[in-house]
């Protein structure tokens, strides 16, 4: 005959397994945003934000990008090792261009803001490679 405490342990184990599995399922999804500002033809500010998705993302993986997996499952580390390639890939995916130019008394100045809105990326870490793909 089962005791009440035994049942509690069983349900706790079950819950922890469900929680662990759900976290494991979301672990390969990242939210990435990118922005840089160019002021008078000079790069002024550049930001790349990477964070793990706290909830499961919707959508199907689109154009894939493959990087050599040298970071053992850490996307931030992997991107910091290959920043140029990843930023080139982001440019390919598409950026919003916001350009504002002013000419006051014949003196010209301009600001261009390039933005990638926060996008969910699915990242599959294999033994040798990491496959990154945006979910749309």
């Amino acid at each position: 005959m089962r005791s009440r405490d035994g049942n509690l342990n069983f349900s706790l184990r079950l819950c922890s397994i469900i929680l662990f599995n759900s976290l494991a399922l979301c672990a390969d999804e990242y939210l990435i945003s990118y922005k840089y500002i160019v002021k008078d033809a000079t790069l002024y500010n550049e930001t790349l934000l990477v964070s793990k998705a706290m909830t499961k993302c919707q959508g199907k993986p689109q154009e894939e990008f493959i990087l050599q997996n040298s970071a053992q499952g850490d996307l931030k580390e992997l991107l910091s090792k290959n920043p140029e390639e990843f930023i080139e890939y982001i440019h390919k995916l598409g950026l919003h261009v916001n350009h504002d130019e002013k000419t006051i008394n014949m003196q010209n100045s301009f600001t261009t803001i390039m933005t990638l809105k926060t996008t969910c990326f699915k990242v599959d870490f294999n033994d040798n490679f990491a496959i990154i793909a945006p979910l749309k």
Partner: peptide, 16 residues
């Protein structure tokens, strides 16, 4: 006194 010209461009560009 003051002459101002402002231009704006807003677009989404991909696959360049």
């Amino acid at each position: 006194q003051r002459s101002t010209v402002r231009t704006y461009v807003q677009a989404m560009v991909r696959n360049a």
